[in-house]
């Protein structure tokens, strides 16, 4: 089973990527921007999937790493005028380091306690973004991050260049994440999700696996945060708040946890739904709520797992 599933997934990924590659030149720039947004958030949703779907650790503070990496890019580029690679590597490094430190605290607990602690950590970081004014600019955030293609010195500019650059990053991340979940390490994570006690008795160091899973997820979230900072050109505390984390949670659960492809679809669907519907009606939140409820009732395992039969 483990051997086949990624095979199927890769066909679907190839298909989606083909669409993301072919469509943009035909679309107006606003739609290209939305696609870019979907791709960046897809990386983030997939990174949470490693934690939530594969390891079974429900994190309500995952947006924190995304936000911290985005803040790192903003501070480095706007306040210190750092060059592109310093910003990118700095963002990823700071986000990953943070997850490595916080992972030490949270990897001891499971289930609802994990949920509570990650929620608390997320709120603390949000508070820091809000109150550590000399560095974060407080409520107003930091604006004026140079566009990615200008900062990186790419020969091409505009929304298309940004889109394709993001797509490359996405492909690399998706490939790496697929490697992680297919590896023996990934299988162990799934084992922990199913029955941690049994994995322990088989001799696995489950704490270390959970910890590494947390760090890996944090690292990919940081990559997504770096791209998000460049895409929007500013950062603000709303990147770190509970709403961001819970929306991310919804992307994964709506799309289908422990599939990687599901969260990608979830991210795309939510970005599309929010932006298309709000253009037509002021009651779009109501519609979004109904969509969530219907999805949870009709596809409790997420869209991508919709046709999966109950396992024998």
């Amino acid at each position: 089973m483990a051997g086949r599933r990624p095979g199927r997934n890769s066909v679907a990924i190839a298909l989606a990527v083909a669409l993301l590659v072919v469509a943009p030149p035909l679309l107006p720039s606003y739609w290209v921007g939305l696609l870019t947004q979907m791709v960046i958030l897809a990386i983030l949703a997939m990174s949470l999937d490693i934690l939530l779907g594969y390891t079974g650790l429900p994190s309500l503070g995952h947006a924190a790493f995304f936000g911290v990496a985005a803040y790192a890019v903003a501070v480095l580029s706007v306040r210190y005028g750092a060059n592109f690679w310093v910003c990118v590597l700095g963002g990823i490094l700071i986000g990953t380091l943070l997850s490595a430190v916080l992972g030490l605290i949270v990897s001891h607990v499971r289930d609802v306690y994990f949920l509570m602690i990650t929620l608390a950590i997320g709120m603390v970081l949000w508070g820091l973004g809000h109150r550590w004014i000399p560095v974060t600019g407080g409520d107003n955030g930091i604006s004026g991050i140079p566009p990615l293609e200008v900062h990186a010195g790419l020969p091409f500019q505009g929304p298309l260049a940004l889109h394709y650059a993001t797509l490359v990053v996405f492909l690399i991340c998706a490939g790496l994440m697929r490697l992680v979940v297919r590896s023996p390490f990934g299988l162990t994570l799934r084992g922990i999700r199913e029955n941690e006690g049994r994995m322990k008795s088989l001799g696995f160091n489950t704490w270390l696996h959970c910890y590494l899973s947390f760090v890996v997820a944090g690292a990919f979230a940081s990559v997504s945060g770096v791209m998000w900072a460049y895409y929007n050109g500013f950062v603000s505390p709303t990147y770190l708040d509970l709403t961001a984390s819970s929306e991310l949670f919804l992307m994964v659960t709506l799309g289908g946890p422990s599939t990687l492809v599901g969260p990608m679809i979830g991210a795309g669907a939510i970005v599309l739904l929010k932006n298309v519907m709000s253009a037509y009606t002021a009651r779009w939140l109501l519609i979004l709520g109904i969509v969530y409820i219907v999805a949870i009732l009709a596809a409790p395992q997420g869209l991508w797992n919709l046709r999966k039969r109950p396992s024998a």
């Binding site: 089973m1 086949r4 199927r8 066909v11 679907a12 298909l15 989606a16 669409l19 469509a23 035909l26 679309l27 107006p28 739609w31 492809v261 679809i265 795309g268 599309l272 298309v276 869209l303 991508w304 919709l306 046709r307 999966k308 039969r309 024998a312």
Partner: peptide, 29 residues
């Protein structure tokens, strides 16, 4: 069991993606 599940899922999800795309292109056009 597995192969059957495979084809079925692929079909459904391909349709999902394709119809989503064509709607997007329609809107875009």
């Amino acid at each position: 069991m597995e192969p059957e599940k495979t084809t079925f899922r692929l079909k459904v999800d391909t349709r999902y993606v394709v119809s989503g795309f064509s709607r997007t292109t329609l809107v875009a056009a």
